[in-house]
Simulated scan of single mutants.
Amino acid sequence: MRDHEALAAFERIYRADVGAITRFFARRCTEPQLVADLTADTFVRAMTSFGTFDARRGSATSWLFGIARHTFAVHLERSARSRAVADQVAGRRELDRDELAELEARIDAERPGRALLERLAELPELEREAVELVHLCGLAPKEAAEALGVPKGAMRTRLYRATARLRAVVDDEVEAR
């Protein structure tokens, strides 16, 4: 693929998925600047590795969610090491009012998603991520399996178990009322 064709293909993928990737981070972070930075980091990583993307192995969306998951894991690892504030702020550009307002609105819109993630916290990690990718991000179970690096059959099992566990939690809450 020629450079201009690759650039056009990446731009199509970016435009199709930037909203979903931003929402993914907005469910995890309440700081607009951090949501913007993690989204940008994800697409920078995607752009630099775009030459290795193979649509025969999975969709661009599942590929991007895999990169986003890795980007967030790296962020958590760095945060856990408690870097100095100056290190965390270095290289950030200030958001203008419109960008800040838009990200605040996205973060606010993802409040129900954050609440669901809190309820899912008791599930095993892969079940929790499977529910999020399928039910919050809108990926097909096959795409979620690709993003998580698990077999399709295992994804169906994880979704079934997670749904059953969540149903039991909701039933318990209804009985307690």
Score class of each variant (00 low, 15 high):
residue 102 E to N: 14
residue 53 F to H: 06
residue 39 T to E: 00
residue 21 I to Y: 08
residue 110 E to S: 11
residue 83 R to M: 02
residue 167 R to L: 12
residue 44 V to N: 02
residue 64 L to S: 09
residue 161 R to S: 06
residue 32 P to K: 05
residue 107 I to A: 06
residue 84 A to L: 10
residue 35 V to I: 04
residue 94 E to Y: 06
residue 109 A to D: 07
residue 142 K to M: 07
residue 28 R to C: 04
residue 114 R to S: 08
residue 146 E to R: 07
residue 29 C to P: 00
residue 112 P to G: 10
residue 35 V to F: 09
residue 93 R to G: 07
residue 16 A to N: 06
residue 5 E to D: 14
residue 103 L to N: 14
residue 81 R to W: 00
residue 126 L to W: 04
residue 52 T to A: 13
residue 153 G to A: 01
residue 162 A to L: 12
residue 159 L to R: 10
residue 80 A to L: 07
residue 131 V to T: 09
residue 114 R to V: 09
residue 19 G to S: 14
residue 26 A to W: 02
residue 61 T to F: 08
residue 83 R to D: 05
residue 120 L to V: 07
residue 34 L to W: 05
residue 132 E to R: 12
residue 139 L to Y: 11
residue 97 R to I: 11
residue 104 E to I: 02
residue 3 D to S: 13
residue 75 H to K: 08
residue 82 S to I: 11
residue 78 R to T: 01
residue 80 A to E: 13
residue 129 E to C: 13
residue 27 R to M: 12
residue 98 D to S: 14
residue 172 D to K: 07
residue 125 E to R: 14
residue 169 V to P: 00
residue 9 A to Y: 01
residue 58 G to T: 10
residue 81 R to E: 13
residue 136 L to V: 04
residue 140 A to P: 05
residue 11 E to P: 02
residue 121 A to C: 06
residue 152 K to Q: 11
residue 143 E to V: 03
residue 148 L to V: 05
residue 47 M to R: 07
residue 51 G to A: 09
residue 143 E to W: 13
residue 108 D to Q: 03
residue 111 R to G: 12
residue 6 A to K: 12
residue 85 V to R: 05
residue 7 L to C: 03
residue 69 R to K: 15
residue 107 I to R: 02
residue 39 T to L: 00
residue 37 D to C: 01
residue 30 T to R: 09
residue 27 R to C: 10
residue 1 M to A: 10
residue 140 A to K: 13
residue 161 R to G: 00
residue 155 M to V: 01
residue 128 R to M: 05
residue 150 V to A: 07
residue 77 E to T: 00
residue 56 R to W: 03
residue 39 T to W: 03
residue 119 R to L: 13
